[in-house]
């Protein structure tokens, strides 16, 4: 295998996630799309660490950090979502206008 197929897969997964994050109306689906984009970035990191001229493990460590940050982001995002749902009884992106001026 070569590097290019993995980069192409990452690009396609990123595109799917980007489309979802831009068009979906459900807040949870938007969060899921963001997770898919982070996963595409992780594929690229691990692929570059595998196919580097001097292969090293740094890319995998970055991917692990990335996964930890993504887990924190999901936790805080879902907490905000639950709190918002309690106030507005909705999980629609268009209803999130409490801090809009």
């Amino acid at each position: 295998m070569a590097l290019q197929p993995f980069l192409a897969l990452g690009a396609i997964l990123f595109g799917i996630g980007l489309y979802g994050a831009l068009t979906k109306r459900n807040l949870i689906i938007v969060l899921i799309s963001v997770e898919m984009m982070l996963n595409a970035a992780n594929i690229n990191l691990v692929a570059f660490s595998h196919f580097a001229v001097t292969p090293n493990v740094d890319g995998q460590v970055y991917a692990l950090f990335n996964i930890a940050i993504a887990a924190a982001e999901v936790a805080v995002g879902l907490a905000i979502l639950l709190s918002f749902f309690r106030i507005r009884n909705s999980s629609d992106v268009r209803d999130v206008n409490l801090m809009k001026w």
Partner: peptide, 20 residues
């Protein structure tokens, strides 16, 4: 979503990153 994540895990294992 579970399918996407499991597939990405398989890609990591192909790339020799079994721990990730």
């Amino acid at each position: 979503l579970g399918g996407v994540f499991l597939g990405v895990a398989g890609i990591f294992i192909i790339l020799g990153a079994d721990f990730v």
